[in-house]
Design a protein around this nucleic acid. Structure first.
Lengths: 161, 161
DNA sequence: GAATCCGAAACTATCATGGTTACAGTTAAC
DNA sequence: GTTAACTGTAACCATGATAGTTTCGGATTC
């Protein structure tokens, strides 16, 4: 399983695309993601290293998008937060070299697994943060007109995050 | 990372395709894979549950292919040994439902991740155990004519596995 | 100078993975 | 029927990844 860091990172970027040009703190994002601010900062740090966000310390600081939402693909996000360039593990220890199968199986599997990996990545490359953001907003609007209203407590929480 | 069980399971099946119609024991396979026989038996058990191999206990027993090598795809193997039908993890804990992003991000990501997963699987579906076996044998032959010969010790080990 | 915010280190709990030992059950051969 | 050769499964351990938490130093704004 690919870790939840990808999902959280997309969440973070979609949130920042929503609050465009407004620096958001790790605490506010953490409230939306429902996790600890440090977990958010670790992921934001990876996105900063990849040049997708800029981070400002101090009062009124926080993170903002460094690129346009439609210029950030889910593949960019995946590569930023998921380390290692291999999706499939090969054998834990080297197979017997004196066996016809053991001596060559890894060289046969490597390119196959690499192709499978690339196929997965090409799907991620076709979706941008802007796409995710607009879908999220479309869903939020759809809920809004289906008669669901907020009470005072929900309103306060909605404004908080 | 997807566990090495897939690579080992393909190795096991390619080995059985090589030793066609001859029951191979977990110990022999383990020697080729370079691991513990119990690890092999766990994987062979999963392949047996998926109907790819039949297993015979007792003297002269072992595992044999239950289907033709060209009728077993790497996708079959992947699904047999890798549990769970999701490749990507979503958020560890449910995001804030009172946030536009948090309340909808998972529903947006789920189908995208599913599509990416399917794209990866479709590559695995195009490769059979017969393909892997023939590639392995082609490599073994290529090594053979490049002048690499075995000494007595290597010969014994080659016959053992 | 105080308040706010990030960055990073350190520690913990949990879980998946792979390896190992041990043993019960099944089969074939003698 | 006994023995030897297998599988199947449970139990346990070591390792590493993951996510959460606390803490503190440093940067920034007011």
């Amino acid at each position: 399983m690919i870790s939840s860091r990808v999902a959280v990172a997309v969440h973070v970027l979609a949130y920042m695309a929503w609050k465009r040009s407004e620096a958001v703190t790790s605490e506010r994002i953490a409230a939306s993601v429902n996790t600890n601010p440090v977990v958010v900062r670790r992921i934001v740090g990876a996105l900063r290293n990849a040049g997708m966000v800029t981070v400002q310390p101090g009062v009124g600081g926080g993170a903002t998008l460094a690129r346009e939402p439609d210029d950030i693909t889910l593949l960019d996000v995946y590569r930023a937060v998921e380390d290692g360039d291999e999706l499939f593990s090969l054998h834990p220890s080297e197979p017997s070299r004196s066996c016809n199968v053991g001596g060559n199986i890894r060289d046969v599997l490597r390119p196959i697994f690499c192709t499978a990996h690339r196929a997965m990545e090409s799907v991620l490359a076709q979706v941008s943060i802007a796409d995710v953001g607009s879908q999220v907003m479309a869903m939020a609007r759809a809920e809004g007109c289906c008669g669901e209203s907020m009470n005072a407590t929900e309103l306060r929480r909605a404004q908080a995050v």
